[in-house]
Simulated assay, not measured.
Amino acid sequence: MGSFSIWHWLIVLLIVVMVFGTKKLKNLGSDLGSAVKGFKDGMKDGSSEDKPVAPPQQVTSAAAAEKTTIDVEAKHKS
């Protein structure tokens, strides 16, 4: 009794077709397929937008850095 045989599934399928009809089942299948496709596209687009972008870093030469550096203790000693 733990598992269903193929005959159980065929009877269930027959009852579902009789209740809903083939046209509604076809529409349901296409709607489900488009929903899954939309979900996959959304996940694909969302993964590229969620990646963190590193801020641009300033590149300065050592000579330019030495010109703008101020020794605070040297001003206080004078």
Rank of each mutant, 00 (worst) to 15 (best):
M1F: 12
G2R: 10
G2P: 08
S3R: 14
F4H: 09
F4I: 03
S5Q: 08
S5R: 05
I6Y: 08
I6H: 06
I6K: 08
W7T: 07
H8K: 05
H8S: 06
H8C: 07
W9G: 03
L10G: 00
I11G: 05
V12N: 04
V12I: 15
L13M: 06
L14M: 13
L14F: 14
L14I: 12
L14P: 07
L14E: 07
V16I: 13
V16Y: 00
V16N: 04
V17T: 05
V19T: 08
V19M: 04
V19H: 01
F20P: 00
F20C: 06
G21I: 01
G21E: 04
K23S: 05
K24C: 01
K24Y: 01
K24L: 11
L25R: 01
L25F: 03
L25H: 02
L25E: 01
K26R: 10
K26G: 04
K26I: 07
L28W: 09
L28F: 12
L28V: 00
S30K: 06
D31Q: 10
L32G: 15
L32S: 14
G33H: 01
G33E: 03
G33L: 02
A35P: 00
A35D: 14
G38D: 10
G38M: 02
G38W: 03
G38C: 02
F39I: 08
F39A: 12
K40T: 12
G42I: 10
G42C: 04
G42N: 15
M43E: 08
M43C: 10
K44D: 10
K44N: 10
D45R: 14
D45Q: 14
G46N: 06
G46D: 04
S47T: 10
E49Y: 15
D50C: 08
D50R: 11
D50M: 15
K51E: 15
P52A: 02
P52S: 03
P52D: 03
V53A: 04
A54T: 14
A54K: 15
P55F: 02
P55V: 04
P56S: 05
P56L: 01
P56W: 00
P56C: 00
P56K: 06
Q57S: 13
Q58N: 13
Q58P: 15
V59D: 08
T60G: 00
T60M: 13
S61F: 05
S61N: 06
A62D: 09
A63K: 12
A63F: 11
A64V: 09
A64S: 08
A64Q: 13
A65L: 14
K67Q: 12
K67L: 14
K67F: 03
T68I: 09
T68Q: 11
T69F: 13
T69M: 07
I70Y: 05
D71E: 07
D71F: 02
V72D: 02
E73V: 05
E73S: 08
E73R: 12
A74M: 04
A74L: 05
K75F: 12
K75H: 06
K77D: 11
S78K: 10
